[in-house]
Amino acid sequence: MNRRFKSLAATLSSVLLTLFGLTVLTFLIGRVMPVDPVIAAVGDNAPEDVILRARTEMGLDQPIPVQFLHYVYQLAHGDFGMSVLTKNPVAQDIVRFFPATFELATAALLLAALVGIPLGVWAAVRQGSFTDQAIRVVCLAGHSVPVFMLSLISLLVFYSALDIAPGPGRQDIIYDGMIDTVTGILTIDTLIAGDFDAFRDALAHMAQPVIILAYFSMAYIARMTRAFMIDALKGEFVITARAKGLTLATVIWGHAFPTVAVQLVTVIALTYAGLLEGAVVTETVFSWPGIGQYLTVSLMNADMNPVIGTTLLIGLIYVGLNLIADILYRVLDPRVK
């Protein structure tokens, strides 16, 4: 009990330390960037006294440590400042944009894991065979062809030429504003509204970006699964399992696979974090109104508050997913206790 408490305390303190580092880093980004937030807010042509007044109002005439404390105080109250571009509080913007990314990332991760893990296991079992080579080529292509290229080709072929896929965006324009936002996740909101046409439309719009993102992540998951499984299949306990007279499927999925589950959790958590931080390129190509697009547009317009806000969010996601992975280790591998 005592040992468990200690390891919990160690995990929590490392999380807190990471969060502190994250606030310092984002604070510094705001100061180091060669962008004057005052000019960005009031414009280039504002008279001198307006600029001075704005500077005082924004607290930028204070010493740096005071500014930092003020920053932490604001963060603690969920205040990320205002976005110059959208004229909304950043927190509100994030609440609006994040669900779109969440929906895309989660669907892509599920697809990637459901295809990638079995493919990786299959390749490992048939190591060196034609199947293994074929899977390797498919994965290599998925990991090396740039996502924007796949996205553009996909749009060109399926939307423009064949016209079997919907164009960019999350939904057709006729459903715009028709669905009440409850969760922000369109597939769920349309179901809550009971509008199945809108639901189908949302799914159709997701198909291309989800498949392209999933292909990229699947390639990584399959490659790692293959490597882990090849190692596991060399274990003596696999011989034991076979000597017991178990079927090949039980030996693979019942004995070898559970031993690599822990390693896979890390891979999947990191893949998920990567997807959640906003597939910037994919979101841009598909005009997907997610966090990645929000970040890019803000960055290009020197709108620093959203940049810092989303950076913090992405950091939080990483820390959170690592924490979850840590907890899952303890559940999945009895040796970790």
Binding site: F237, I239, T240, A243, P258, P334, R335
Partner: peptide, 28 residues
Amino acid sequence: SEKQMRSIRGKRAGFILQDPKYSLNPVK
């Protein structure tokens, strides 16, 4: 065949390996 072997392995002939540290499944 593999199937015939499965009715021998375990059922009719047991096989004890050298080191239980490696020959038992660590997560079961």
